[in-house]
Design a protein around this nucleic acid. Sequence first.
DNA 1: CAAATATATGCAAAAAACTGCAAATCATGC
DNA 2: GCATGATTTGCAGTTTTTTGCATATATTTG
Lengths: 249, 249
Amino acid sequence: MLKEERQQFILNEVGIHNRVLLTDIADQLNVSVDTIRRDIKELHASKLLKKVHGGAVSLGFNNYNPTGKTIYSLDKKSQIAEKALGLIKDGQVILISGGTTNLELARMLPPKLKLTCFTPSLPIAIQLLGKSNIEVIFIGGRLSKDSQITVGGSAINMLSEIKVDICFLGTNSIHPMEGLTEFDWEIVQMKKAMIHSSRKVVSPCISEKLGSTQRYKICGVEEVDVLITELEPWDAKLDAFKNLNIQIV
Amino acid sequence: MLKEERQQFILNEVGIHNRVLLTDIADQLNVSVDTIRRDIKELHASKLLKKVHGGAVSLGFNNYNPTGKTIYSLDKKSQIAEKALGLIKDGQVILISGGTTNLELARMLPPKLKLTCFTPSLPIAIQLLGKSNIEVIFIGGRLSKDSQITVGGSAINMLSEIKVDICFLGTNSIHPMEGLTEFDWEIVQMKKAMIHSSRKVVSPCISEKLGSTQRYKICGVEEVDVLITELEPWDAKLDAFKNLNIQIV
DNA sequence: CAAATATATGCAAAAAACTGCAAATCATGC
DNA sequence: GCATGATTTGCAGTTTTTTGCATATATTTG
């Protein structure tokens, strides 16, 4: 592998995650940490990233990270987000619900892509505002403190007035028989409305949540058009979903 | 986890809650309190927060400044915000427009105060979300990239359905004869709608902007009930506003 | 004032960074 | 084809940084 490729890869990773670990990169590229260290040293010298102890961070790192949450299973989520990116075409109108996976998706949207994005999520709106080619339309309403999305009649009302190409519906629990479930009643209502406003429903869901259920039902599995997980298509965990008329990515 | 990430996390928490506990952070990040203590010591040294016994608190302003604009006259703005606080009573319903002065107001709202706040401003919504006793209702609509508030028909429509006790109307230009003026046509429409939705209009305005005018007119001075500046009441710059049936604070 | 809690300090283990060096690779000219 | 020199890469040893713990000191609170 060429040095340029490596450095490009590092820059790419930094661009997506805002941070990289020396050991991670070395591991992924099968080279010694010293090599990566030297690469990062160079990139640092040419001011393309910032070298820190243990890795590197993007130059604009001290940006506001509105969720404040530790983004664990980051890799899984960005894998999902990456797959989700493939479903979006230039010029489309999309609807993005809340959740960290969707936040990752919003972060990864390429700057060149022209889109109209509806969202009820504050962190996602902030993320999207940074992309100059994306028109952001915020679904107004009462803000729920913990989920940081708008809920309630006003928001649902606004949703009832739109019809989008794709909805990326952050999913807490999905079960082959029970369908999509949620523990917060207000969010259930929001998600129902979001499904109703969309021609195509995409459900990004990390594998831990496959097969789990919660208190309230949003909809059956048949309402979901595409299920995205970080797993390989032949993984056994996906078997239960395979004859349900869902596209699995 | 990188040191930078940790420190960023701390700054986020401080930005959201205005204060953090050492033990809380250490717990959330699974590191020892000593580590967090050292982090906070560093951040304190670089003047990004203020170290206090048991944790840290935010200093004058949080570092969320996406536009990159210089925040000049910070002291003046917090003086104004302080005065504005005096107008708010427990249990009221208020409407807060955008602008850095209003952001300062949102930041300074005491945690005990029970309020319902409407706002079309993303940064202000974030700030308000951190206050547990405040119900936040976001005015939905298309987000304007530079002002970071929602604009357009949908937002104005939502405004038309509400009536609040007080509106804090961030003011770019106020002139004794010409009234309130604004550079951006869409924001003019929003502010008109906001005035229409409020029983009482309060205009926080730093003294530099007194007497200036811009392209489009929002309303006459008579529509404003209270004008708040950082000046002392007997300041000569305020003379022109003194016989216009406006309360000057 | 005393108990509880928080801070400061020194220290040691672990991790990461730096240094020098040798092997491998590659471009270049003959 | 082959020698030369520059560049790159991995490795081993040393130095630096980070981090958690133990102990001593300070601060808060009832």
